[in-house]
Amino acid sequence: MHVLVLGGTTEARALAGLLHPRVRVTSSLAGRVARPRLPEGEVRIGGFGGAEGLAAWLREHAVDAVIDATHPFAERISFHAARAAASTHVPLLALRRPGWVPEEGDDWRDVGSLDEAAAALDALGDRVFLTTGRMGLAAFAARPEWFLVRSVDPPDGPVPARADILLDRGPFTLDGERGLLRRHRIDVLVTKDSGGAATAPKLTAAREAGVPVVVVRRPPVPEGVPVATTPGEAAALVLEGRLSRTGAAST
């Protein structure tokens, strides 16, 4: 059996470790991180050339199942995977960590896009902790606020005129996030609803400090694609043969 795992997320690496060497696993990484943490099994880096290119790769390499374990905001590759799986009749499963849920004391402002997040900064403060990744910063480039921009690699494209760049990779600690908010006198936090524990401490630190959080909602999984929420659940569906040829998980 040959399984293609899409994504360089923590969940994708964990899934590859659960499947390898019981089945042949190829993990596909987008190549946007300079020094990615490599999973077990085979690894390929780079795009496929859209849905058609991915479909051709699935046929050429005799793939029996695709697991979309990409970042919750990697919307394009998720829809390409859905189209490719449908055209090749290869089962497809999405692995998505649960989203974050506000707790008592949180001051969250939900928005639908980075542009809406930028607009939501009006009257929230002048010092912004921006943790939406290195791409898409152009949405904030014209803003007058000062930004602390945290990303794994240096940003692509335009950045805010008043910005400090902090290159760092999670997991982050609560004490570290508390100190970051305090040292930089942060007024507002901007984040995507990535979910997971690795970057969640910033939310607790913001709650404790009374800092409002602008949260960009994640895009939906393509219609008809079943979802697993943990690597263990996804691995069980694969190893127990409970993925149908239409991509639906059987019960």
Rank of each mutant, 00 (worst) to 15 (best):
A142L: 15
A139T: 10
D115H: 09
G112Y: 05
V101K: 13
R143E: 07
G105F: 01
R109K: 12
A138M: 10
D122Y: 13
T131C: 13
R109M: 08
F147G: 09
A118Y: 04
L124N: 00
A117V: 00
L148F: 02
D115V: 12
D106F: 00
P144Q: 05
D106N: 03
A120V: 05
F147L: 06
E104Q: 14
G125A: 01
E116I: 06
A120R: 02
R134G: 14
V111D: 03
V128C: 08
V101M: 12
A138E: 15
G133T: 04
F140M: 11
S113H: 05
W108V: 05
L124D: 04
T131E: 02
A123E: 15
S113M: 04
S113T: 08
D115N: 11
F129M: 15
E104D: 13
L148Q: 05
E104A: 15
E103D: 09
P102L: 06
D126A: 15
G125Q: 08
G125C: 06
D115S: 12
F140I: 11
G112S: 14
S113Q: 08
L121S: 08
P102D: 03
T132G: 06
A138R: 14
R109I: 10
P144G: 10
E116S: 11
D115T: 13
A142Y: 04
F140N: 08
P144N: 09
R127G: 11
W100N: 03
L148W: 03
G105V: 08
A123P: 01
A141M: 12
F147Q: 02
R134C: 04
D106M: 00
L114F: 08
V111N: 04
T131N: 02
W108N: 05
D126P: 09
G133Q: 00
E103F: 00
A141R: 10
G99H: 04
W108M: 03
W146G: 12
G105D: 02
L130E: 02
F147K: 02
A139C: 13
R109V: 10
T131F: 09
G125T: 00
A123L: 12
V101I: 15
L114N: 10
W146I: 07
A118C: 09
G112R: 12
T132D: 03
